[in-house]
Simulated scan of single mutants.
Amino acid sequence: MKLKDKVNLGPAGLVLFLSCWANSGASFAAEPLFVQRVESATPSREAIGKAEEQVREHKDVKFREKMAVPPFHKRMEPPLKEGETYCQGCHRPQPHSKKLRTRSFLNMHSRYIACETCHFRPEDVRLEYRWFDYAARQPAAADGGRFRTGRNLDNSVLIDGKFKIAPFHRGEPAFALPGTAFAERVGREWQEGDLAVRARLKARLHAPLSKEGPACAKCHTEDSPLLDLAALGADSRQAAAIRRHVIPQFFGRYQSDDDRLKIIDILR
């Protein structure tokens, strides 16, 4: 049963109750670690100012249904609702766009790795990484069949986007989920708030997050990789294929955005 089902309050009363509940010591600890960090965040004036500028300049992406010239490539449908992370309530399904060299590969990762795995990395706690079923809203058992490499690469296995590798803290999910009391309250604040309210809300939501995710070599390496692949269900062949993947090695040879890429270099 959800929190909002336990009380009979109107919208205004619910918002007040959630605010008090989120800041009470006893109930606060039950929230995911990310939510706790958002609730306690105190963004700097600079961070709020930057957020205000971003909110002011933001424009929603709209797909044109009728085009003078039909698109050559097949247009991708939006992701299944059952596989959406909380971040996808605002960010696009392919959120990486600025780094031309790596953005396609990073967007591929968002199909089976939760946003928070790369961008929620608090230094004062230890996180574990497990599979999470976003459709069933519960942790999923380790399963090497979800990796698109090793034995599955030979069989062209499709990735089920509802399963993602996500961060856990003390055995519990460390991330927010769509449709929860927290998500609904934030959604109302955004819809009803003016520019100043939205800017502060955006700054608080992003305060616990790192803009830059870990480098490719943090996972694709033999030297203490970020993810425990065996614990996620990968067999030895899959783990070796992931850690020795040629693409991250290829990118690792280029330190500057001005460096020219040569496809032949991928064979070295």
Rank of each mutant, 00 (worst) to 15 (best):
A114Y: 00
C115P: 00
G145T: 10
K66T: 12
R75Q: 11
H73K: 14
D133I: 08
T102N: 08
P71V: 15
H91T: 02
E65F: 12
H96C: 12
D124H: 10
E116Q: 11
D133Q: 09
A135V: 07
P78S: 11
R103V: 04
K99T: 03
Y86Q: 00
C87T: 11
E57Q: 12
R148H: 10
P70Q: 14
D124F: 10
G150L: 11
G49T: 01
F120T: 02
E84M: 15
H73M: 14
G144P: 04
I48M: 01
G145N: 14
F132A: 05
A47Y: 02
R64A: 12
R56F: 11
P95Q: 11
P78I: 14
G150I: 08
R151H: 12
R126P: 02
P43V: 01
P95G: 03
E84L: 14
Q54P: 01
K81G: 02
A136P: 08
L127F: 06
L127A: 05
F120D: 00
S97G: 04
K59N: 06
P71L: 12
K99H: 06
P93R: 05
S156C: 11
E65N: 10
E46T: 00
C115S: 09
P79I: 11
A141D: 15
L100I: 09
G144D: 11
R146K: 15
K99Y: 05
C118P: 02
E57I: 05
E57V: 05
G49A: 01
K99R: 10
L100G: 15
L80S: 13
K81L: 13
E57Y: 06
E65T: 09
H91K: 00
R56S: 02
A141E: 15
V157C: 09
E46K: 05
R151I: 08
D160L: 10
Q54L: 00
R130H: 12
R126G: 06
D160F: 13
D124K: 11
K50N: 04
E128S: 10
S97A: 04
P70W: 08
P43Q: 02
E57C: 07
N107W: 03
P43H: 02
Y86E: 01
M108G: 05
E77C: 10
L106K: 13
A136N: 08
P95V: 00
A136I: 06
E116H: 04
R101M: 08
R56W: 03
R75E: 12
R75A: 07
F72P: 07
V55Y: 00
R151F: 07
E65M: 12
D133G: 07
A51S: 09
T85E: 15
R130Y: 03
K74Q: 15
C87G: 10
R75Y: 10
R137A: 08
C87Q: 10
T42K: 15
D60C: 01
D60H: 00
V125S: 09
T117S: 14
S110D: 05
M108N: 05
R137Y: 09
H73L: 14
D143A: 14
K50W: 01
K62F: 10
Q94G: 05
V55M: 02
K98D: 06
N152A: 10
P95H: 03
I113Y: 14
A114E: 01
T117L: 05
R126A: 15
R92W: 07
V55S: 03
E116Y: 03
Q94Y: 02
S104W: 09
